[in-house]
Amino acid sequence: MQITWFLARRFSAMIAVMFLVSVGIFSLIHLSPGNPIDILLGPVPRTPETVATLNERYHLDEPLYIQYWIWLTNALQGDFGTSIRTSLPVSQEIADRLPTTLALGIYAFIITVVGGATLGVLAGLRQGTNIDRVAVITAVAGMSIPSFVVGVLFLYLFAIVMPWFPTSGSGQGFIGSLWHLTLPSLSLALICGAYITRHVRAAYGRILGEDYLVFARARGVPSMRIFVTYLTKNAMIPIVTISGIVLSMLITGAVLIEVTFSISGIGQLLVQSARYQDIPMLQAVALFMATMVMLINLTTDLLYSFIDPRIRLGDGS
């Protein structure tokens, strides 16, 4: 019972936030400096005909709330209008670039979680040892160096000094993509992995000191079982929380990395669109990113309640 209630609350909260975000994104066209018509015209010469076409297309002579409604219903059906820069449908452009960005994100997330968590677990279990010190220093370094700096450094080291990896592009086929995306994913993963390492280390360290762990050992529960069902399962609770935040960081971080490595993904699209004041494209990308972040948060909450019975069943107090 409590779980459905919990989900319903979270979901309606997400809808409410999405509404506010979409209003903000829609307003972009009116908030940007200059006349909406001029912006939408882009390089096309201003004639009464073109203006009339645009007015009809974007319903610019209607009241704002009707404009918003039309824009929203279209957006929900995947129609974000035409890109000013390329004059192609916006949805088409996004669909073309999405696989690359997704590949980059997933690749980076895997490196982040596998690398960051492994280091975090090792450090957490052996706090105060050399492994721990190395992990902590790596984490601090990872968090303090911006990803584009790391990107440039990696490019210099592993693409120019030692030309193992390509300097740009996203490659063809699975192997090609993997080869092209390794350096960008690594750069992206370093900073996010650092957060994971720190949190995993803290979570394991804290749980190691918990009474229930001592009690489990005192009654002879095998150490492998203690590691899995006591340490790891309890540590998952804070780790899931931070994973959500890290995934959101990956999405925003991808923008810088795609530009650094000249990868034609969503992030690069965002930068190009911003430069051209390609408002329909910007709106679509922004809404897409916002939706992603919110879906990640919702998933985090779901996982959370799945792991922790106190949330699922409601703490008595």
Partner: peptide, 21 residues
């Protein structure tokens, strides 16, 4: 290998000694 079957222990605080999950 002795713990549990030969020597066992209970601790003070029943609110923290059981795995909450």
């Amino acid at each position: 290998s002795l713990r549990g079957s030969d020597l066992s222990m209970i601790l003070q605080d029943p609110f923290t000694i059981l795995n909450p999950l």
